[in-house]
């Protein structure tokens, strides 16, 4: 398999001014992550709010500037500052689907104009060709082409998200970064959009970077999944492997925290106490040690590296407990 996108030691730090300090502090939104997306796959990025998953997605489409690290698309570094022509070239290959189906469409443009806009920006086709392309895109996402003259407010949330998908598809990209594309939608509609995304993946030859807080959705759609916590990837594995054998204590807790739609399967214990620490002053050592019930002395000083679990190069975990070279202490399963 060929790597389509490689992220290497990506860091995004935002300056914030604290009242008590003269020098600006930094929010370490993304703090050194590595992953690779292969052609045709769906790569999931999960975690709770503030873990840096959205920032990672935005850095890939250059909506935020990386502070350090590299991002290679098809072998070319796209993390450095770019000229407009390069930026446009990137836009034809990598697109973005936003979370909010309401604020992501310009309320004053018709749906036809919204979907046509990327074609105009890139000077693709004349007016008649563009009209045809728009009609095809709208049909492909399950809307009728004669609604091109309607305004976004005439559509429901799910239909608006379809319009957002059509706009992202207009330039025929290879990779689409999807930032929580279904979290603002009702369940029944969510299922429609997820199915649509799967269908389009085949017909348009797409790879997805799918960002979500919802593990069930990620499990349904993704081939490989990275779990993020406090700006770091704590576990990265294939879907089967991750859900059968979640090895990082955080991934385990995250899975246990999901309320199952089954009254027979009641949760009895709080899977995790406390809150995520501030990304302005992340704790030393393992970022998760403040909430981890297995934490021991080394976790508080020494930051664990993302290493293969039991020699399996496709299942990476950043936890001292999972790596036998840490010696003395082994993870005690309940």
């Amino acid at each position: 398999m060929n790597p389509l996108l490689e992220v290497k030691q990506l860091k995004v730090h935002f300056p914030v001014r604290l009242k008590s300090q003269f020098r600006p502090a930094y929010v370490r939104a993304v703090d050194g992550i590595d992953f690779t997306i292969y052609k045709g796959e769906t790569f999931g990025l999960v975690g709770e709010s503030g873990c840096g998953k959205t920032t990672t997605g935005k850095a890939i489409v250059k909506l935020v500037e990386p502070s350090a690290g590299r991002i290679f698309y098809d072998g070319k570094d796209i993390a450095r500052p770019m000229k407009r022509a390069e930026r446009k070239e990137l836009a034809r290959n990598v697109q973005f689907i936003f979370q909010d189906p309401f604020s992501s469409l310009d309320p004053r443009l018709t749906v036809g104009k919204i979907v046509e806009e990327p074609l105009i920006i890139h000077g693709l086709g004349d007016a008649e060709e563009r009209r045809k392309t728009v009609a095809k895109l709208l049909t492909d996402v399950g809307l009728s082409a004669d609604r091109a003259q309607s305004f976004p407010h005439e559509f429901s949330g799910g239909q608006r998200q379809r319009i957002g998908v059509a706009r992202a598809l207009a330039l025929n990209p290879s990779l689409i970064v999807c930032d929580e594309p279904v979290s603002a939608l009702d369940v029944s509609v969510q299922a429609q959009i997820l199915n649509l995304m799967k269908t389009l993946q085949d017909s348009y030859n797409l790879s997805y970077l799918f960002i979500s807080h919802n593990l069930a959705v990620v499990k349904h759609l993704c081939d490989r999944i990275a779990v993020m916590y406090l700006g770091k990837i704590v576990e990265l594995a294939g879907k089967q492997s991750l859900f059968e054998k979640p090895s990082h204590p955080y991934a385990e807790a995250l899975l246990a925290a999901i309320p199952l739609p089954d009254p027979e399967a009641l949760m009895h214990d709080e899977p995790l106490e406390g809150d995520m620490p501030s990304p302005i002053k992340p704790p030393p050592g393992c970022p998760f040690h403040t909430r981890c019930k297995y934490a021991f002395a080394r976790c508080r000083i020494d930051e664990p590296q993302l290493l293969p679990l039991d020699g399996d190069a496709d299942h990476l975990v950043a936890c001292h407990l999972c790596h036998p070279d840490t010696g003395t202490i082994h993870k005690i399963k309940k």
Binding site: E48, S49, H213, L215, A253, L254, A256, A257, I258, P259, M267, D269, E270, P271, L272, E273, D275
Partner: peptide
């Protein structure tokens, strides 16, 4: 709320 926090509140 986030899932882990949701679990706390449900509990």
């Amino acid at each position: 709320l986030d899932v882990t926090i949701q679990a706390q509140i449900l509990n």
